[in-house]
Design a binder for these strands. Structure first.
Length: 368
DNA sequence: GGGCAGTACTG
DNA sequence: CAGTAC
DNA sequence: GCCC
């Protein structure tokens, strides 16, 4: 009964001829690859490949589905309900495969497919890369080169004065883009640490600005951008122009990660006299994020940390109230934006503590 | 509806 | 343990 | 996606 086992067969005689049916098999293989590497369905992929491989070996060019089913190239093809057979039929009759074309039009599919070609990058990692804005191998390469280029600089912490200087640039750019907005440095800086590993700057317009934004120009009519989504790009453009931002790691709709350097003319502290020595400051990791005013208290809490402090607070919220806390608000269900809790008036961090029946803890005391 | 090969390495 | 490669 |  082992006679039919593939491991008991000799490979076919014509070891391999030319594939006369590339018009069919190319599409099937493309689809299989997408099923496997993008959609996480290796068995579906396997079956498409099975059909493709069988068809490749045919000694003639197929033009009608009958040629493939009367003695079926693979057993499944004998069935009228075989979906692979349906797909092949579509290719034969229309010359196209809609399902495939549709998938190939999808951004995520294209990106994940390209990224998984890198050794060590599988479906999960590729999906993650896509989620952080890395869609091509070149973007991945660029990021890694930045990681290596600044390897030594990245594990130096910056004095808080330097963090303050960089944050000052961001704040001035933000104020120009969005008059009246707040721009605060969170993270360990806000916790009052003497040195910081990186810098998180949160930008948030005022409620007034949010309602006035649709009017296009406000106040004196200069400066200011027209809509919320223009804030981040405008701020980034100015910071790049000033040479404050030197490299981008990821640039999203309202979240930026990159490298910043306090301006060279601010002098590295060499003192007076000679010292024309290149004062170029160390490159620092910086994140800039834009939040709507009602989200700011949550974002501040989240990005001020510490990580441990956050986890303990979220743990309490969940255990005591069954609530989920993130950088945008309090939710009844994790990762369900629609379940946002709106009954409380949360204007600042203290309100969040109060809502959760916790005593307020000042930023300087959150380095637990 | 569950199985579809099994193992080794990495972090 | 999840993810990846083979 | 196919097979039991």
């Amino acid at each position: 009964m082992r006679a039919k086992l593939a491991c008991q067969q000799r490979s076919r005689d014509p070891p391999k001829g030319v594939n006369l049916n590339a018009h069919i098999t190319d599409k099937l293989e493309d689809l299989a690859e997408i099923y496997d590497k993008v959609l996480g369905d290796p068995y579906k992929a396997k079956n498409h490949n099975l059909a493709a491989n069988a068809i490749k070996d045919l000694p003639f060019k197929a033009t009608r589905i009958e040629q493939l089913v009367d003695p079926p190239v693979i057993p499944a093809m004998a069935s009228k309900r075989s979906t692979v057979r349906g797909k092949i039929n579509e290719i034969l009759t229309t010359g196209r495969l809609q399902k495939l074309e549709e998938l190939k039009r999808n951004d995520r599919v294209v990106a994940v497919r390209e990224l998984t070609r890198v050794w060590g990058v599988g479906e999960a990692k590729a999906r993650h890369l896509f989620n952080v804005g890395i869609k091509t191998v070149n973007q991945l390469r660029a990021r890694q080169m930045i990681g290596l280029k600044y390897f030594d600089e990245f594990d130096q912490r910056m004095p808080r004065e330097e963090a303050s200087a960089i944050a000052g640039y961001v704040e001035r750019a933000a104020r120009r883009a969005c008059p009246g907005c707040v721009a605060v440095a969170a993270g360990s800086y806000r916790r009052g640490k003497p040195t910081c590993g990186d810098l998180d700057v949160l930008i948030s317009p005022t409620r007034e600005w949010m309602t006035a934004e649709s009017c296009g120009s406000l106040g004196d009519g200069r400066g200011g951008v027209s809509t919320f989504k223009d804030i981040l790009p405008t701020v980034l453009a100015e910071l790049r122009g000033k040479g404050v931002l030197t490299d981008d790691l990821s640039v999203g709709k309202d979240s930026y990660m990159g490298l910043a350097r306090a301006d060279a003319d601010a002098d590295g502290g060499g003192g007076m006299g000679v010292v024309p020595v290149e004062p170029a400051r160390t490159h620092r990791r910086i994140d800039v994020k834009v939040y709507a005013p009602e989200e700011l208290p949550f974002a501040l809490l989240y990005f001020t940390g510490s990580g441990y402090f956050n986890r303990s607070m979220r743990y309490w919220a969940k255990r005591r109230f069954g609530l989920s806390l993130n950088d945008k608000g309090i939710f009844r269900e994790t990762s369900n934006a629609a379940s946002k809790v709106t009954d409380a008036e949360i204007d600042d961090e203290a309100d969040v503590f109060e809502y959760l029946r916790l005593k307020y803890v000042a930023p300087e005391d959150r380095s637990v």
